[in-house]
Design a protein around this nucleic acid. Structure first.
Length: 372
DNA sequence: GTCGATGATTGCCG
DNA sequence: CGGCAATCATCGAC
């Protein structure tokens, strides 16, 4: 049983017989069973309580101690508790937060915190904003498990921007280093907040326990207060999460900007694209599905495939002669592939519309050209 | 550094 | 909105 509950429930024992600490002037009128004496006694006590704030700190302290030891204290305390209980039931005040923010920090010492307020404990549903932030931090590898933080996100970013994957290790590590930095700051701050929250909570709880010696404060109220504190701190945490998210976003956009620096597609990708282009020379307009297929094969985006075909068409048309050799080469290769495929009884990859007369003039296939 | 190649962007058109 | 044409910006070989 903690001190507070003890104080709230003990009707017997403490200070019922004899008051060694009581100053002489408080002893008067405490002896007889006569009603007048008792009234006088209570009036006296109340008077002392009312004027305690007018006294010097030392005096007040002494007086407080004396009152605490007074034999009427448990009874008075109970009365106060009851009154408070009733008042609370009548008043459904929603001032908890404001009372907290304005009250505790200012009234940290001595001044009574306004805690006896209801309506502070309704279980609010998880904040969607907070969930969004949490999800994002998790996705970016900031709040997730330690190892390999952010590499998945970096890879995703690289893939999204058309990075080929093998040649961007420097930028990757740069990105990862920055992300790790953010991650570290985030965790240190989070830890700091948690520590501060715990310290503050302990402090307030001690304060309340201390105050429960003179004021009617129930464990429920303390719990409520703790809840308020936690909510306050989690709102601060949310700000931290928000700014961390922003930092990650900025980092990511910078990373993507850096990726914007054009990088030539690798040889394999170019070959795949050229193969399609020249084998569909009559109609070099891949459908959306074909573009997706090509994008997947080349490890680039559909937009890049579109860009490539746009550039290729215009440049081919502008100077067919220049592309003659290239066209012949791919035509020959396609022919060989088709021959191989048919000899193996499979038509799997043969183009549906091989180069025939159409939109773009076909180069003449010269069989004496070397393949490769 | 130059210059051709090439991926991306922009503005316009049907 | 997809495609075209012009243009920009960068790459990479020399």
């Amino acid at each position: 049983m903690d001190e507070q509950t003890r104080l709230m429930h003990s009707h017997t024992g403490v200070g019922m017989a004899g008051h060694p600490g009581l100053p002489p002037h408080m002893q008067e009128g405490t002896g007889g069973p006569d009603g007048d004496g008792r009234k006088q006694d209570i009036g006296d006590i109340l008077q002392q309580i009312m004027t305690i704030t007018d006294q010097s700190l030392d005096e007040a302290q002494a007086r407080k101690h004396a009152l605490n030891c007074h034999r009427m204290k448990p009874a008075l305390f109970n009365v106060l508790c009851e009154i408070k209980e009733k008042t609370e039931r009548a008043l459904d005040v929603h001032l908890a937060e404001s009372a907290f923010s304005g009250g505790v920090s200012a009234g940290w010492r001595g001044r009574a915190c306004v805690l006896s307020i209801r309506g502070a404990q309704e279980e609010e549903p998880p904040d969607p904003q907070l969930m969004r932030l949490d999800n994002m931090l998790l996705a970016e590898g900031v709040s997730g498990p330690e190892k390999g933080g952010g590499s998945a996100a970096a890879a995703a970013a690289a893939a999204a921007s058309g990075g080929v994957g093998a040649d961007n290790s420097t930028e990757h590590s740069d990105y990862r280093a920055k992300l790790t930095q953010i991650r570290q700051i985030y965790h240190t701050e989070l830890e700091k907040y948690e520590q501060a929250c715990n310290e503050f909570t302990t402090h307030v709880m001690n304060l309340l326990r201390e105050q429960s010696r003179t004021r009617p404060i129930s464990p429920k109220e303390i719990e409520r207060m703790v809840n308020i504190i936690h909510r306050k701190f989690s709102s601060i945490q949310m700000q931290l999460k928000q700014s961390t998210c922003e930092a990650v976003m900025i980092l990511r956009s910078r990373f993507l900007d850096a990726r914007r620096k054009r990088r030539n597609f690798n040889k394999q990708a170019t070959e795949i694209l050229n193969e399609y282009f020249y084998s569909h020379l009559s109609n070099p307009y891949p459908s959306e599905e074909a573009k997706e297929e090509l994008a997947k094969k080349c490890a680039i985006t559909v937009a890049q495939v579109s860009n490539w075909f746009g550039n290729k068409r215009i440049r081919y048309k502008k100077n067919i002669g220049k592309f003659q050799e290239e066209a012949n080469m791919y035509a020959a290769r396609t022919a060989v592939n088709a021959a191989n495929a048919s000899s193996h009884g499979s038509q799997a990859n043969s183009p549906s519309t091989p180069n025939s007369a159409g939109g773009y003039p076909s180069p003449c296939y010269q069989s004496d050209r070397r393949i490769q």
